[in-house]
């Protein structure tokens, strides 16, 4: 009897947890439905003209800015993270490797608002000296890269732990160099896990709000130069949701829906394709 009750209760919990994602998706579709059906796709997806007061709801420039910031941040953080992860395994003595791993864990736990705060008080004035106003695309890229880097290191580190000891012994027996061991023996084994890590980090970068909002300058324009301010899709939601109403608010929900679908595509890619 008690077992039946427990089974029912835990089953209910599992149902809630399992359906939450669909519920979020459904709620975003519902809240953005009037915009989705009322506005022509060309008007919101491809246009860069965002002026809610005049009925202009072009999300294109902000979507492009989100993609640009994320891709560039990843282009810095992923190679650096992989190299540091490999270095931790192959070259670093234990007295460096152990605390450094712990430090990466701590860095991954620092809230994004703290990264953004530091970016605002230190990095923005620094960048301002050669690219005024300082809160520009490259600043956002640097802060985001700094946030993603520990994840990249930790994923690489965890993946390298999976390499069978026998392969490493064989590599040593063949007198391969450290770099050779990494390139020839470890890399083919861990390529898949690292690739899925990179996709996950891309999803994370795309969805990052606060850190980017605080340092990117938030001017709506197509991303053309590293030294011009941009506004990402996430920052736009955070900045305008507070006072938006009617169609304006529906388009903000629509931008959230686009973001959710992009991130879901990343997650499904990792689950389905890359892991085999």
């Amino acid at each position: 009897m008690r077992d039946q009750v427990l089974r029912l209760i835990t089953g209910l919990a599992a149902l809630v947890a399992g359906l939450l994602l669909l519920l979020i998706l459904a709620e975003l579709v519902r809240a953005s439905w009037p915009a989705l059906t009322g506005l022509p796709v060309k008007a919101w997806l491809f246009s860069g003209h965002w002026a809610p007061g005049d009925g202009q709801f072009g999300l294109g420039a902000m979507l492009a800015s989100s993609l640009a910031v994320s891709v560039l941040a990843l282009a810095i953080a992923a190679p650096a993270g992989i190299l540091i992860g490999a270095w931790l395994h192959l070259s670093a003595p234990a007295w460096i490797a152990v605390p450094l791993r712990a430090l990466q864990g701590v860095m991954a736990g620092i809230p994004s608002v703290v990264y953004g705060f530091w970016g605002l008080i230190t990095l923005v004035p620094l960048v301002n000296q050669w690219a005024p106003p300082g809160a520009v695309l490259i600043t956002a890229v640097l802060v985001l890269a700094l946030m993603i880097l520990p994840l990249s290191v930790l994923v690489t580190d965890a993946a390298l732990h999976q390499v069978p000891a026998r392969s490493l012994q064989a590599a040593r027996a063949l007198a391969l160099s450290r770099w050779g061991t990494f390139r020839q023996v470890m890399w083919p084994t861990v390529r898949g896990s690292i690739a899925s890590g990179v996709v996950l980090q891309f999803g994370r970068a795309l969805g990052e709000t606060l850190a980017v909002l605080m340092v990117a300058g938030n001017v709506i324009r197509w991303p053309g130069s590293l030294t011009e301010p941009v506004r990402t899709i996430t920052a736009n939601i955070a900045l305008e949701m507070g006072y938006a109403s009617g169609l304006h608010s529906q388009v903000l929900f629509l931008s959230g829906l686009i973001l959710l679908l992009l991130v879901m595509a990343c997650m499904l890619l990792v689950r389905g394709g890359l892991r085999g």
């Binding site: 939450l20 994602l21 979020i24 999803g203 994370r204 996430t234 879901m264 990343c266």
Partner: peptide, 11 residues
């Protein structure tokens, strides 16, 4: 569903 949910952005 939970795996995908864990990647959904906080905003």
């Amino acid at each position: 569903s939970l795996d995908v949910l864990s990647g959904v952005p906080s905003i």
